[in-house]
């Protein structure tokens, strides 16, 4: 019997063996990824409420989509999310790259400093959210104290003010995730062979020219990759902001994912929120695809 199986297995082509190995994973992926996605899409055309189980589920066609896309409040949340992403990515790119350039120099305590800088990234976002509410406290908060130490703005409330709250979440996210872009940029910098700089020096290229023509092009694919990860993460940012502001004041920091959670798991508008989720999915999927294409082009250059 045993021999028979071995004999049979020996007769299988490489391709067949590959399929045998990959099938369990594929099935699992279908079951936990693709099936829920298709299910959510089909839900999005109904008026289903997951908390009203006895209720008849009606097919409503594109009504949910029309409602979402026509709603001013949804566009406001999209704008809030877009501006959050824009500023966090911009700041993390600039600060992350600058830190990486500094740490790329050889000096004493370099390793220790890198470890220290990377620390915020290792914390739980929920914890970060909670302790920054203390740092932002207008009466005893360290953040307000430090800002007022340099220039006395008087009493200000980062979380309670609609103009400052969006910046409050940008600052915390930047504080927490700049180390991530820094690490990846650092990996990029370390991969640049030294002879390129030596050759440039022979050609009498100055420091700025070396940076523009060697460092930046070499590190750019790494930076873009880091920003892709950060972009996807921040598009679905939830925990840190909920702990920090609960989306407030009013809805000044209510990101799309926070609103989605409220529609889906507090109001239980399952059909409606499925449509919302599909729209968000298509948006990030579309952006992601375009981004990867651009990134590959840059890499090829």
């Amino acid at each position: 019997m045993k021999n028979k199986i071995i004999h049979k297995a020996k007769g299988l082509s490489d391709r067949a063996v590959a399929w045998i190995f990959i099938t369990p994973t594929l099935l699992l992926l279908l079951a936990i990824n693709i099936y829920p996605l298709i299910y959510a899409i089909s839900m999005s055309f109904t008026n289903f409420y997951a908390n009203k189980l006895g209720r008849e589920i009606k097919w409503v066609g594109l009504k949910n989509y029309a409602k979402i896309l026509g709603k001013e409040a949804i566009w406001e949340r999209m704008q809030i999310t877009a501006s959050f992403m824009f500023w966090t990515l911009l700041l993390q790119a600039i600060i992350g790259l600058s830190l990486a350039l500094l740490l790329n120099k050889k000096f004493k305590g370099n390793e220790l400093l890198t470890t220290l800088i990377v620390l915020p990234m290792m914390l739980s976002p929920a914890v970060v959210g909670v302790f920054w509410t203390y740092l932002y406290n207008p009466q005893v908060g360290l953040f307000n104290y430090i800002v007022n130490f340099f220039y006395d703005f008087g009493s200000f409330d980062m979380i309670g003010s609609s103009t400052l709250a969006p910046w409050a979440i940008v600052i915390v996210d930047t504080w927490m995730w700049t180390p991530f872009t820094m690490l990846i940029c650092l990996a990029g910098l370390r991969s640049i062979p030294n002879y390129l700089y030596e050759a440039a020096e022979v050609d009498r290229a100055n420091r700025l020219q070396q940076f523009i023509y060697i460092t930046l092009p070499s590190v750019l694919p790494f930076l873009l990759l880091a920003l892709l990860f950060r972009g996807i993460e921040n598009f679905k940012m939830f925990d840190m902001v909920v702990e920090l502001t609960s989306g407030g004041p009013g809805s000044a920091t209510e990101l799309a994912s926070i609103q989605l959670k409220r529609e889906a798991f507090e109001k239980w508008k399952t059909g409606y929120s499925s449509a919302y989720a599909v729209i968000l999915f298509v948006t990030i999927f579309g952006f992601g695809n375009v981004y990867v294409k651009v990134m590959n082009k840059i890499k090829d250059r």
Binding site: K52, G160, G250, S251, E254
Partner: peptide, 23 residues
């Protein structure tokens, strides 16, 4: 009402928006 959470959320949002956010 059975839909009380759906009724609570807009109240939270718009009252907070007016009182705290000044909108």
């Amino acid at each position: 009402e059975p839909t009380f959470v759906e009724l609570m959320l807009p109240m939270q949002e718009h009252v907070h928006d007016y009182v705290v956010n000044g909108k």
